[in-house]
Amino acid sequence: MASESISVTTSDDQTIQLSRKHAQMSQTINSMLEDSVGADQEAIPLPNVSSEVLKKVIDWCTHHENDPAPVEKVKKLNKKREYKAKNSTISDEWDKNFVNAELRVIVDILLAANYLDVKGLFELMCKHIANELKGKTPDQIRERFGIQDDLTEEDKAAMRKAWGATKNDS
């Protein structure tokens, strides 16, 4: 019988115990477990995740452990030729508090969720950053996310033309 907890080793050489339920919320760990069936139960190495961030991930998994599994939606082209964005509303109060953190922490959790393939957490972090971007000017985005302006004047002129008014605006 499979043990109820799994050991993982983080990038800062900490060994952390995960419940099997939480481990299975990560597609990455799940795949590693499937690959290692019958092998000696050694700690699973997670070289891209620090213990601090993994604890955050576990907190999120604990809160959402009884959520229904996310359904993979088939990507369809928008036949109306109108751009449609995904819903960025964060409705869960606990999630709202969870994302109320420094941007450095948010980005670390996003990277961890991406690496560990925890879909719900990854989506939550993307939503939060998307909401942060709303209403910010390019200068403010660059400052907030430490981005260099490498656009040439020609690039900007092309974008002005692309976002310019057309006869269809009326």
Binding site: Y83, A85, K86, N87, S88, R104, V107, D108, L110, L111, N114, F122, C126, K127, I129, A130, N131, L133, K134, G135, K136, T137, P138, I141, R142, F145, G146, I147, Q148, D149, D150, L151, D155, K156, M159, A162, W163
Partner: peptide
């Protein structure tokens, strides 16, 4: 900490078209 390029696409997928304008003038 910089975000990998491909993650920006996932983030932008939650933004309506109007909010994609400013990022276009931010960096390549």
């Amino acid at each position: 900490q910089h975000l990998p390029d491909d993650l920006w696409i996932d983030i932008f997928s939650f933004l309506p078209l109007a909010d994609l304008c400013a990022p276009c003038f931010t960096s390549t």
